[in-house]
Computed example of a mutant assay.
Amino acid sequence: MLLDYLKSWPLYVLPHHAVSRMVFRLTRVQCPRVVPAAIRLFAKIFKVNLAEAEYTNPEDYQTFNQFFTRSLKAGVRTIQGGEKHLVSPVDGRISQVGKIENGRIFQAKGHEYSALELLGGDAERAKPFMNGQFMTIYLSPRDYHRIHMPVSGQLIEQVYIPGRLFSVAGHTVRTVPRLFARNERVVALFETNHGLMAMVLVGAINVAAIETVWAGLITPPTKPSVQTQTFDAVHLEQGAEMGRFNMGSTVILLFANPNLTWTKISQADQALQLGQLLAQFN
Rank of each mutant, 00 (worst) to 15 (best):
V13H: 12
A215Y: 04
G121F: 04
Y61K: 04
L277H: 08
A279F: 03
A256G: 06
H148P: 03
T63S: 13
L26T: 07
K264A: 15
S152Q: 11
A198Y: 09
I79M: 11
P128E: 03
G239F: 01
S266R: 01
A279G: 14
E157K: 13
K44A: 15
A37L: 13
L189K: 06
V168W: 00
V159K: 01
S225I: 05
G75S: 06
Q158D: 02
F46G: 01
L196P: 00
A18I: 10
D4N: 15
Y55Q: 13
G110S: 07
R182G: 02
E52C: 05
I137K: 04
L3V: 12
G132P: 00
Y138K: 08
A74R: 14
D269V: 04
V202W: 04
F106S: 12
P36H: 06
R77Q: 03
V35F: 10
T175A: 05
N183Y: 11
I218R: 00
Q62W: 10
D122K: 08
I156N: 07
E83Y: 14
Y144D: 07
S225T: 13
Q66C: 09
N282D: 11
I252W: 00
G216L: 06
V200Q: 03
V23R: 03
G170R: 13
M197A: 06
L50K: 08
V251W: 00
L14G: 01
A204K: 12
T136C: 09
V207G: 04
E52S: 03
R164H: 12
H111L: 15
T228F: 02
R28H: 14
N183G: 06
W214T: 07
N65T: 06
K84Q: 14
P89R: 08
T222H: 13
S225P: 08
L26G: 05
Q273R: 13
T230M: 05
P177H: 06
L50W: 00
P162Q: 03
T250W: 05
I161F: 07
F281T: 01
E191C: 08
Y113Q: 09
M22V: 15
A279Q: 06
E54L: 13
F46I: 00
V34M: 15
N246F: 02
V159W: 01
P58C: 02
R178A: 10
H85R: 13
I79W: 07
G243S: 08
L253Q: 02
V97G: 04
V34P: 03
G248S: 15
D143F: 07
N49V: 06
A198C: 05
F64P: 11
W9H: 04
H148K: 08
Y144A: 04
V34A: 14
L139T: 07
R142H: 11
